[in-house]
Amino acid sequence: MLKGVLEGCVLEIISRKETYGYEITRQLNALGFSDVVEGTVYTILVRLEKNKLVETTKKPSDMGPPRKFFAINDAGREELQRIWAKWAFVSSKINELKEQRT
């Protein structure tokens, strides 16, 4: 379940500002997803790019190799809306189930 949620999180982070893998990973770590590593985010980014939900640009970095930056596109924004709609549905159902507990 976490995998699907993470994809939404990564796309959400990208939608706010053009960014790159390392930064996204640190942001997720700071959010409390402490076992998310670069590799996890990388596989998600590869998929987002393959599904044409993001645009990429290579930019030189002051340290190490050039970095690949990701920016959301229109298809990505639509997908993000779908993801959050789905999430709202799932979480409302889970809450409903929890409240049935007496």
Partner: peptide
């Protein structure tokens, strides 16, 4: 290799980049 170059440049340990379960990383990819 892109991913690894970036991790190495940042001085990270390789398994901190891929995660301990490297097979899971590959399968996800």
């Amino acid at each position: 290799v892109d991913l690894f170059e970036e991790g190495a440049a940042g001085g990270q340990y390789v398994l901190d980049v891929t995660g301990r379960d490297v097979a899971a990383f590959c399968d996800e990819l």
